[in-house]
Design a protein around this nucleic acid. Structure first.
Lengths: 209, 209
DNA sequence: CGCACCATCCCTTTTTTCCATGATTTTTCA
DNA sequence: TGAAAAATCATGGAAAAAAGGGATGGTGCG
């Protein structure tokens, strides 16, 4: 019984690459591909693959969110995250949203095949490099939990607003902002504003683009 | 006469994808691939392709630097930048270092073929999306040129050091640091340190991991 | 109810940054 | 070699942030 796979990636070359890796492989059935979240969901209404290879970055939605949706709608399919980035936060979010595995795009045919077989047995698969990285980062990189207000203030700090400006904008007194600021420095263990902003970006507490 | 190509990319799937796009194409001769800068340079000592498809991100060296080296050693080969990122600074640096073109990894076979033909005629090729983006971002997103010292100070600021600490570390007076700092604020057009750090990261003037 | 947590507010002192202005030496490179 | 750019240093004042303290009301939860 062949394993049926479906791939979601906005990079034509990656789709083509995986296709060419498996098109001669009898044990793998290529159901097709999608280049965005919407057409992926449309496809799944018609047909369910055993495994979905899902890129982290899609044009219309993050792969992380899409993974969650897929697992809610179709709990039986296995999702394997696919990315060029060996980034802990991505991997964790992906796995937290129900993914069965995570492989990097520099994986070989053998690694991919391994991942298929492993997840079909109901176990999780992390590619070699990913697993290694997770071990090394284990104790360090944990993002603190911020309150709604703290996040707001953090974003405004990074925009370059002063306490007084933030106070006006958020309709509170400057002292309140000052307190939030102190708490942020404490929670992120930052020495000052500069380090605070850097850590906030590194830990993906604020988004920018 | 077939166009000979060589590809440098650390992602197995991308190599495989491009290979599969062209292996049946008589007008394109596939010379091989490398997954890092060192083995690329080693290959070029043996044989020169017409076109090198060069990824921006390599494990041992940035594709931008490698492009410069290649064009210095072998001015006749055409380099086409290859990336998932549609980022102005990358594109500009790549072209400034002698690249003949820049295509995204979601390019189709036709687009790639176009790019080959265009650069072989001695003209530059930018894939559709790239050209469109450059037009829209024209006046805005340009990273300023920083001096060696300014970059050093910028990194230390993001680490959370104060002027006095940086002065000690760099064996200069605090006033000197202050001047660099002012110049940084001016060059990046930042209101204060917080925005400075954010912009520095957004514009990829400092690296973190 | 008591407890933890959040959001709000206030005060003081010290440190650091921001701004303006000006100047000298060193390096770079056309 | 000569001009331009970079790096260096300084003074002084205004503004902002950091660090320390303490305080009040509200909400959710076992």
């Amino acid at each position: 019984m062949a394993i049926s796979i479906f791939i979601v990636d906005d990079h034509y070359m990656v789709i083509e690459g995986i296709h060419s890796l498996f098109h001669h492989e009898k044990s793998v059935e290529w159901l097709g591909h999608a280049t965005n979240a919407a057409s992926c969901l449309a496809f799944l209404k018609q047909q369910l693959p055993d495994i979905i290879l899902l890129d982290i970055n899609l044009p219309d939605k993050s792969g992380i969110d899409l993974c969650k949706e897929i697992k809610t709608l179709y709990p039986t399919v296995c999702v394997i995250g696919l990315s060029t980035f060996n980034q802990q936060s991505f991997i964790e979010k992906m796995m937290a949203n129900g993914a069965s595995g995570y492989v990097l795009k520099n994986a070989t045919q053998k690694e991919l095949m391994d991942s298929f077989e492993t997840v079909m047995k109901g176990r999780a698969y992390l590619s070699h490099e990913v697993a290694q990285m997770l071990r090394s980062h284990e104790a360090t990189d944990d993002a603190p939990v911020l309150t709604r207000r703290e996040k707001e203030v953090l974003e405004l700090i990074a925009e370059g607003l002063t306490n007084n400006e933030m106070a006006e904008k958020l309709f509170v007194s400057a002292s309140t902002i000052d307190t939030h600021r102190k708490n942020l420095l404490m929670k992120l263990n930052a020495k000052n504003t500069a380090e605070l902003v850097k850590l906030a970006i590194v830990k993906k507490l604020i988004s920018f683009s």
